[in-house]
Computed example of a mutant assay.
Amino acid sequence: MKTKILLAEDDPDFGMILKQYLELEDFEVAWFQNPEDIVSLLHTDFPFHIGILDIMMPSIDGFSLAKMILKEKNNFPLLFLTAKNQKIDRLMGLKIGADDYIAKPCDPEELVLRIRNILKRTQPAIPLQIKIGDYSLDTEKLLLSHPQGNVRLTVREQELLLYLLKHNGTMIKRDDILDNLWETNDYFTGRSLDVFISRLRKYFLNDPKIKIQSLRGIGFEVDFPVT
């Protein structure tokens, strides 16, 4: 699953350069020249892993935009771009809750390094062992264990299982799963998702407390007794 970057940069030339370079580094970039377009997304699923905000933007400056984002998305990782490189900018950004800043024009390689370092610090590590009802999942070995037998998961099966666990007890939209794990949404990937869901149901048959329920036309609702 690619890291999704929210890029707020009103300079069309610099924004395009950043977007293209980050995509070459295998990031997925949503570039916004108008920060007001980002505000309208704050009450949605907001599928981003990190934000890169230019400080000097029209209508809404980077600091104000950061405050709006963090009010709705607590602890969302942010990196500021500043052209002035002044001490007051750096202090203000850190006070608001930014994880880092970099002066423009920036070295793209340094920017990528800073992004990866922020993600390492802020993204929780996947536990090596997860207890799911009567089952135990070893995420390093991709091994789902049960007293009546073990199953070696594929990478995709484990990715889907971890995504469902992350959204345990909530309604999970099909489109969100496809966009986050398959990074595409068409008939064939939809059918592939159904196959993987059927496999997971089969793997968990030995514990009736575990439920993966289909919601017609919407997605799924899961109940995993995790300890």
Rank of each mutant, 00 (worst) to 15 (best):
F46K: 05
D223K: 15
V195F: 09
N74Y: 09
Q129W: 09
S59R: 13
R201M: 07
L178V: 05
Q148C: 04
L91E: 13
T82V: 01
K131P: 04
L178M: 14
D175C: 10
Q20W: 05
K19S: 02
T184D: 09
A125G: 11
Q123R: 13
T122A: 09
F63G: 02
F224Q: 01
K141M: 05
V195N: 14
I210Q: 05
L193C: 05
G169D: 08
D99V: 06
I69F: 02
H43D: 11
D100Q: 06
E23P: 08
L18S: 00
F32Q: 00
M171P: 11
M56V: 11
M68R: 15
I88N: 15
A66T: 04
N185W: 04
K141R: 13
P77N: 00
D134W: 00
N206F: 13
S40W: 01
I17A: 09
M57S: 01
D11S: 06
F48K: 00
D207W: 09
E23Y: 02
A30R: 03
N34A: 07
E72G: 02
G97H: 04
N185E: 10
L79Y: 00
Q148V: 07
R201Y: 05
M56T: 12
Q213P: 08
F48L: 01
L165T: 06
Y21R: 07
G15Y: 01
H49E: 12
E9H: 08
D179A: 15
G169K: 09
S198M: 12
L7D: 00
R116M: 06
K2Q: 08
G219E: 03
L7F: 03
S192H: 10
S145E: 11
Y101N: 00
N75T: 08
D175L: 15
S40F: 06
L7T: 01
F63P: 02
M16N: 12
P208R: 12
Q86E: 15
V226E: 08
L7P: 00
P124N: 06
L165K: 02
D223F: 14
Q86P: 03
K95V: 08
R90L: 12
A30N: 04
R201F: 06
R156D: 13
F188Y: 15
I50G: 00
L7S: 01
L24G: 13
D54F: 00
S145W: 08
A83M: 02
L137C: 02
L41N: 03
E140P: 05
K211A: 11
D61C: 03
F220K: 08
P127A: 10
M1H: 09
I96Q: 01
D99Q: 14
D89S: 05
D99L: 10
Q129L: 12
L215F: 13
F27A: 00
D45S: 11
N206C: 09
T44N: 10
L7R: 09
K95Y: 08
L128A: 14
L78K: 00
N180F: 14
F196W: 09
L137I: 13
N75H: 12
F46P: 03
N117M: 05
I118R: 00
I60L: 14
K84N: 14
M92I: 05
L215K: 15
Q86F: 04
N74G: 03
K2R: 10
I52T: 07
T170D: 11
T154P: 05
I69S: 11
I172Y: 04
M92A: 14
K71N: 10
V195W: 07
D194N: 15
L162S: 14
